[in-house]
Design a protein around this nucleic acid. Structure first.
Lengths: 216, 216
DNA sequence: GTCAAAACAGGCAGTTATGCCGGTTTCTTC
DNA sequence: GAAGAAACCGGCATAACTGCCTGTTTTGAC
């Protein structure tokens, strides 16, 4: 499962196995820029993602940066791909590690818990900023939406192929999946207002709900 | 219920019952500016909320705007108050209208449905933009967070006073309340990716879950 | 009617980011 | 090792906002 899903999401950044040194160098500075851009996103939202900041933070000159990413949106696009890839990777790393030897009925609850953990990461925070900004920034949306749809399709396809034993309940499982994704994102955004305690409790409640829906 | 809750949230904008004409005039232009600012938010996110745009859209001169709101953040603060007030008002208008004559067991599900409708409004869209921006904008957060907490406290207090029959299950009801709020926000943000159908189905599922949690 | 205060108007300097461009250094190829 | 390509550098003009400031008009109190 993990190989196929990750391969399908692999961004240009990490795809190349560089043989020539210039390619390595190029890839390295691109990665540094993307990482800095993610820092910008996390700290300042999509507004805070500026070419200046990204260059300065990564120690790359503005000229070099412009060589790799001609415009701000080019950089943002690279970040989008990177973040989607990492979003899936982070979840899979956790989930596949906890799921070994679990019986069928627990898979969903383990998956929910792993998803909640994967959501509390720097990369997911960046993803949230992009997702929100894409709603009001047409140009970003042209980059973000296709990537999001691709991610979603890959996810669903693999879920169906990986759990043939749930064939009769795929529709419900997909629905539960969507519920978990939506609720976790909502919890993240309400964290500051609700506070850690309530957030954690709702998280546990959701896991229990997932169990209930599986049982029924 | 509705009076107390709304009174507690009443923003400066609408609080005054103007007797002198200058006050009326002043209040009117302030309202026009706030409304335009909300349009800015909805269309361009917090980034798109600029003093220039707000002034231009409302037909108010930059000078006049500066007279009422010295800085961009002053305008944003007025929008925050306005949006929180309207958020509660929109919900109550809907909820109190649908709830008449309902039996106790249906109140939660009616409330959930009403909340889902209240969330699909221009005002709530503006609220979401503010909530997200406040996470990465310290200055905005200083305005937003207190307002959000006040809203939350008023909400909880009134819920407890309004439903004394649920005394033994307040903790659970508060939890369910948080779950609904978080999930609805998450659904909104995933609307474009998931599409209307899935969103609607998850919404229905959530309503059903709320019913299940009440029954148990 | 007059005078102060409130509401309104629009210009100005300063900041910050953007995209582009001419020039330099570092690799790669032959 | 020389030519060409790729990576890198920092300056420049431009654009969008912001906050402030000097006036002008409209209201309201006496």
């Amino acid at each position: 499962m993990q190989q196929r899903m990750l391969e399908a999401m692999l961004p240009a950044d990490l795809a190349e196995r560089p043989v020539r040194w210039q390619q390595q160098k190029s890839a390295r500075t691109r990665q540094r820029l993307v990482e800095s851009a993610i820092d910008c996103l996390v700290e300042g939202g999509f507004t805070g993602l500026t070419t200046q900041q990204a260059a300065e933070r990564s120690g790359v000159s503005r000229g070099a940066m412009h060589h790799h990413f001609a415009t701000r949106m080019d950089l943002a696009a690279a970040v989008v791909d990177h973040v989607f890839y990492r979003r899936m990777e982070l979840f899979l790393d956790d989930y596949l590690g906890t799921v070994v030897g679990a019986n069928d009925g627990d898979l969903l609850e383990f998956g929910t818990a792993a998803h909640w953990r994967s959501v509390q990461t720097r990369e997911y925070a960046a993803y949230v900023e992009l997702a929100v900004a894409a709603r009001t920034d047409a140009e970003l949306n042209r980059v973000f939406e296709p990537a999001a749809r691709r991610y979603d399709e890959v996810w669903i396809t693999e879920m169906i192929e990986s759990f043939p034993q749930w064939q009769s309940r795929w529709d419900k499982m997909k629905l539960v999946n969507d519920l978990v994704i939506a609720t976790h994102m909502g919890l993240l955004l309400n964290r500051q207002v609700m506070g850690e305690d309530r957030i954690a409790q709702v998280g546990k409640l959701l896991t229990r709900v997932v169990g209930m829906l599986y049982e029924e």
